[in-house]
Amino acid sequence: MSPRDPKRLRLVAGSALQRRVLAATAEEEPSPELRDRMAGALGVSAAAIGAASGAAVAKATVSATKAAAGISTTSALPWITVGVLGLAVAGAIFSAREWKASVRPSPAPAPRMIASAPDFPAAAIEPASPAPVPRPDLPDVPSGGRARMAAAPVDLRGQTSLVDAARDAVSSGAADRALAILRQYQDRYPAGVFRPEAAVLKIEALAELGRGAEARTLAERFVAEYGEGSLTDRVRQVAGLAHP
């Protein structure tokens, strides 16, 4: 570590959950089966694999020591039990609710848990001929603990799938399609976790379509709503807003 480098987030991040998540990710290892498969394909001997295991143990030990030097993680976050975390990561609880909302004819607005993204004016999201929009797979209505766990990925998978699809559409110049996907995201997840990202993509799509005035209006709302940040920088650049 360079003397001028900031401290790693996994040691100084604002929340215990964030520190724990970063530490777990930094320590992820391929399974022995995957490791053996890779080694076998490369003609690497079993002795080397053994050495790899030793290195992994050493890394884990170092990481554990670092974590121990930081603030206690799990114990500092009593409201998140392992079960709740597992469900929450997968979006289990709110996925069930949002999934139900998504299949109701007139979904009730979900509670706003985060600062809302700029509203999307209806006039700004009417593609000339709506293209087919990919829909994340929706399973049967779950019931019971295990079934709910099985359905858990749907919500976050659905959200991330739509946002990724919109991003791909923008990247490939299919701005109309991107707008249709983003409208679907907004309808399905009115309080979605990735509303700011969706708003940025909408501004990019509008700009791509030459609808500069609408892009600018949304960009101004975005800046007012979210303040400074890297997403705001991007919005300013796309919509041609002046930097403060």
Partner: peptide, 13 residues
């Protein structure tokens, strides 16, 4: 073999 032992997990991650 040394490279694999030392770095395969990093590359994979």
């Amino acid at each position: 073999e040394r490279m694999f032992a030392t770095h395969h997990a990093t590359v994979w991650r």
